[in-house]
């Protein structure tokens, strides 16, 4: 059930200049609501000049510790204020929103989780859930340079990690689509990152006959399917990314 809830920041670690990893617990001590990998939250940012909530994907859910983790990139005034927040401060969240990735697959399926930049965020929780279900998820993570590779150790704890950097400072040099692991057999790609990257991965998926789900981050206001601002063209017409997505199978989209 969607809800509006106050959270307390347990800690907020800066990663370089442009990112932070924020761990949150419900302020009233209640148990975290059910959240699926690929779902997101809308964060109210109490800072001058910011009106709308900011959609942030769920990076991790620790049921035992009752902690929700968000990975935030500085993309403007709202997210920059989030990066500056300190442990002990309160945040108001609207959650959980959106549909989430599908986590059903045939036994022994090869599942590759492909992330670019801060798009790696939802793949950690997805990888953990897939692992719990008995799969061996692999990650293919891309970034501009080694400094933009976020939380690599967290991913390594869940599964095998392949790395690409545009400048070659770590792993294979180039875009994720250049990585040899994409020329091997696979059952499904899950992809989250900049639109050009997701479109390139979708193309590879079609060529290889691999099932592919992408997580879109269209600009949105309400997060509830009311404002109709975040629409994406699909085979069913314009649909709200916040309610029908953010995860779409590429067959639903009208990408070339």
């Amino acid at each position: 059930m969607k809800q509006v809830k106050d959270f307390i920041i347990i800690d907020n670690c800066k990663i370089g200049e442009a990112y932070c990893k924020m761990r949150l617990a419900p302020a009233d001590g209640s148990i975290l609501p059910e959240m699926l990998p690929g779902q997101f939250v809308e964060v109210a940012v109490e800072t001058p000049g910011v009106l709308l909530r900011r959609p942030i994907s769920i990076n991790d859910v620790d049921r035992q510790a009752n902690i929700l983790t968000l990975l935030v990139r500085n993309a403007g005034r709202g997210t920059s204020a989030l990066i500056d927040m300190k442990a002990g401060e309160r945040l108001n969240l609207l959650l959980p929103l959106g549909n989430g990735f599908s986590t059903e697959a045939p036994a022994g399926a090869r599942l590759i989780l492909i992330g670019g930049g801060v798009g790696v965020a939802p793949l950690l929780y997805l990888g953990k859930v897939l692992k719990e279900k008995g799969f061996e998820p692999e990650f293919l993570l891309g970034a501009r340079t080694v400094a933009d590779l976020l939380s690599l150790d967290d991913f390594k704890a869940v599964g095998k990690v392949h790395v690409c950097t545009e400048d070659g400072s770590e792993g294979v040099k180039g875009f994720v689509t250049a990585h040899p692991c994409l020329s091997e057999k696979a059952t499904r790609y899950y992809c989250c990152g900049p639109a050009p990257m997701m479109k390139a991965v979708a193309k590879v998926a079609r060529q290889n006959g691999v099932d592919c789900e992408v997580s879109l981050e269209n600009m949105m206001a309400c997060g509830l399917g009311a404002c109709l601002c975040c629409v994406e063209k699909t085979v069913k017409g314009n649909v709200c990314v916040c309610t029908e997505g953010p995860v779409f199978n590429i067959n639903e989209l009208t990408w070339e």
Binding site: L51, L52, M219, M220, A221, C229, V231, K233, G237, N238
Partner: peptide
């Protein structure tokens, strides 16, 4: 079907 995306942008104290 409405207009093409993008349909929204935040502006000072509004959208």
């Amino acid at each position: 079907q409405g207009n093409d995306y993008p349909r929204m942008v935040e502006t000072p104290a509004g959208m």
